[in-house]
Design a protein around this nucleic acid. Sequence first.
DNA 1: AGGCTAATGGCAGCCACTGACAGTTGACGA
DNA 2: TCGTCAACTGTCAGTGGCTGCCATTAGCCT
Lengths: 208, 208
Amino acid sequence: METLRERKKQRTREALLRAAAELFTTRGYEGTTVDDIAEAVDVSQRTFFRYFAGKEEAALALQGLVVTRFVQAVRERPAGEAPMEALRQSVLQGWATLHEVIEAVVPVELYLRLYRVVESTPVLLAAHLRRSEEIEETLARLLAEREGVDVDADPRPRLAVAVFGGVMRVTERQWVAREDFGLEEMRALTVSYLEQVGPALTENWRTR
Amino acid sequence: METLRERKKQRTREALLRAAAELFTTRGYEGTTVDDIAEAVDVSQRTFFRYFAGKEEAALALQGLVVTRFVQAVRERPAGEAPMEALRQSVLQGWATLHEVIEAVVPVELYLRLYRVVESTPVLLAAHLRRSEEIEETLARLLAEREGVDVDADPRPRLAVAVFGGVMRVTERQWVAREDFGLEEMRALTVSYLEQVGPALTENWRTR
DNA sequence: AGGCTAATGGCAGCCACTGACAGTTGACGA
DNA sequence: TCGTCAACTGTCAGTGGCTGCCATTAGCCT
């Protein structure tokens, strides 16, 4: 049984998250001030900054939930599985279970719209990419351990993860750019793009 | 023959670039204010912002010179060459001719130290990564045209460039982390890592 | 009930960045 | 050569993100 104080904090945090998502998707990221968000939840600006390191974090925290699940999924993949396949399965699994993670805080539809804001706001995109790199470092160490190689002596873990991350980012961008962008579309794109990495690296593309 | 006004502008810009590089590498990026930079060149803060869109840009402008050359090199590669090979050759060429591009503004040694600052300062790294993505979009269109495919219908150009970019970023990070980091080391790492992308994607890594 | 501590609010201040306006200086034709 | 125009610069005022500090409030625990 958690204490009242903890429940209150949890509620404040989620309220801030909701207000931020709502405002960012309607007025835009730059068009929303931290004061706006704080006011919507009826707390002081100072309190906002006690919950989030900055405005960016409030915009990316929801994705953080999904990413955490994804990394955890990789950790739990069977040891015999090939590295790239473990990543692939974990991502697909992440998309499949996204609903239950997100809906506890905001409607999935709002989450998806926020995704678009992140992708189209330069400063947010930059922060997003940096976070992706941090995750890639985590994954590289994970895979190295799994495969029993030294992550600092053998570049293959980092290379594999970087390639995977690159493909995923292309996928995200294409997905967000579409009219019909839902979770099923994302799944299909992910599978398709990962299949085409090999062909993309071959000699020339004219002979399809 | 360029006019006096243009020469003066050029000089101011390069002076700001030099001062920024010097200050960032000594006091750190966060430890340097825009006022510091402006004062070092004896111009107003307002003038600084007329030359650079922000503090970040002043830190990344030098790399911009190198990147521009790189993209131009890709454009000039023979049409028959395979896409990945064109990128590879262009990067190596870029490192080889870096000296003559940079030295015109600041000592190469200072440029390399600045590289480290970018890689180790979160906000700068984020901006750097975003710019990398923009470049990747440019390259994807370039390669698509070269190969005669539609960049929006065929994902292969973007995928190839994303993979290449991912590998280059891993290379950069490893290079900067080293004690002895010079241009020759960078060249060697680039060649080595690009060779290992294939192996990194194979089944498992235990049988090296 | 009352002391302890975590959480909050308010305030002052720093810094990045911008718009507006006025002053200065190079460019260029008469 | 000079005067006009346009480009460049400085100053100032203001906004917004973010932080440190201190006083106040509110949940926790004995």
